[in-house]
Design a protein around this nucleic acid. Sequence first.
DNA 1: GAATATTTAGAACGACTTGTCTATTGTATT
DNA 2: AATACAATAGACAAGTCGTTCTAAATATTC
Lengths: 187, 187
Amino acid sequence: MASSKRDLVLTCARELFEREGFHATGVDRILDKAGVAKMTLYNNFGSKDQLIVEVLNQSSLLMMERIKQYALEASNDSYEQILAIFRALGEWYQDPEFCGCMFQAAVAEFPDHDSAPAQAALAHHQRLTAIFLELCQKAMLKEPEQLSRKLALLASGASCVARQAKARTPADDALNIAEILLERASK
Amino acid sequence: MASSKRDLVLTCARELFEREGFHATGVDRILDKAGVAKMTLYNNFGSKDQLIVEVLNQSSLLMMERIKQYALEASNDSYEQILAIFRALGEWYQDPEFCGCMFQAAVAEFPDHDSAPAQAALAHHQRLTAIFLELCQKAMLKEPEQLSRKLALLASGASCVARQAKARTPADDALNIAEILLERASK
DNA sequence: GAATATTTAGAACGACTTGTCTATTGTATT
DNA sequence: AATACAATAGACAAGTCGTTCTAAATATTC
C-alpha cells in the first residue's frame, strides 16, 4: 500500500510531537520510530514544516470525531452531551500518555500569528467552539454564541492546567463550572 | 554598576522569549538587542538554560506584584479585587505587545515535567492560585480552595484563547464566569 | 597613577539541524 | 521474466546552535 507508509510517518510524528514538542523532535527521531528512510518522508511531505501542518490537521479532525462520538454514546440529550465532553476531558487527562493539548503547544512554538501551525491551532479551537455552539442551540440554551465561547474557554483552561499539574482536578473543576453555566442558561 | 548589565540582559531576553519563544530565540539575538558581549551573558548566567529559568522566575514575581498592586488600586473589597484581576487581563490582552502567557509557552517548549522551566511555570500557577485563595478567604466566600482553583483555571483559559484570537473577548467571558462563580459562593 | 577586574569583539569548536544526492535493494504489474 | 516504481541506507552539504577561548580595551578600586 502506498499510503500506509505515509500514515505511519504521520502517526509516529504525532506521538513524538505530542510528547517532546515540535522543535525538539528531530526528523531523524521520527524516521527511527517509523522505521522508514529519510526520502520517504521528504517524498511524501516535502518538508518538516509541512509534516507538522498535516499532523495538526489530522489530529484536529481525529479529535473532533472522537468528541462527537463520545457525546453521542453518552446521551441523546444535547444538554447532557455537553457535560459528557467535559467528562471525556477528565479521562483524557488521566491517560498516562497525556502530555497536554498539542495545539496549545503549537501556538507556543510558532508564535507568529500568520504561521501555518498557529492558524491550524486557531482553526481547531474554532471547530471545538462550533461543536459546542451546535449543542447549545439544540439544547435551546440562552445566548448560545457566548455560552459556546465560554465552554471552549473552559476546555482550553482545563487542558492548560492539566498539562502542568497532570491530574483530573482541572477537568472536574471545568465540568463543575460548565454545569453551573448550563443550568443558568436553561431557565 | 555591576548588576545593570545583568538586568539588561534579563529584560531583553524576556522580551525576545515572549515574542518569539525560547528555542527560537538564539543567544546572539539577545546579545544584539542588549548590546552586550557574549561573555557577559555567560559570566552572569552560566548558560542559556539558566538564563531562561531566571527570566521565568523574575517574570513571575513581577507579574504577581503587578496583579496585587492592580487589585489594591481597584478596590478595598476583596470581592471586587478578584474581579479587578480579570479586568486587568482584558487590558493586558489588548496591549499590542501581548503575545500570550510566557509560562504556557514554557511548559509547551519544555515538556519534560521535571525540567526547571516546567517547574517554574507550575510554581507560577500555584502563586496565582494562592493570591486568589487569599482573596476568596478574605471575602468569606464558600469553598475557597475549589473556587480559587477555578479562578486560576479561568485565567489560564483566557490567556490561552487570547493568544490565538488576540482579543479581549476571552477576558470578558472569563470575567463574566468569575462574576457568576463569586455570586454563587457569596450567598 | 597603578593594579585589578570586568567587558569587549570576534574567531573557533563541536554538536546538532534540515534537506539533498546517490547507488542499491525490494516489489508490484504487465 | 522484465520493466517500472518505491523504498532503502548512508554519505553529504550547508547552516544554526550553544559554548569556549583569546587578546585587546575599558572601567573600577586601592
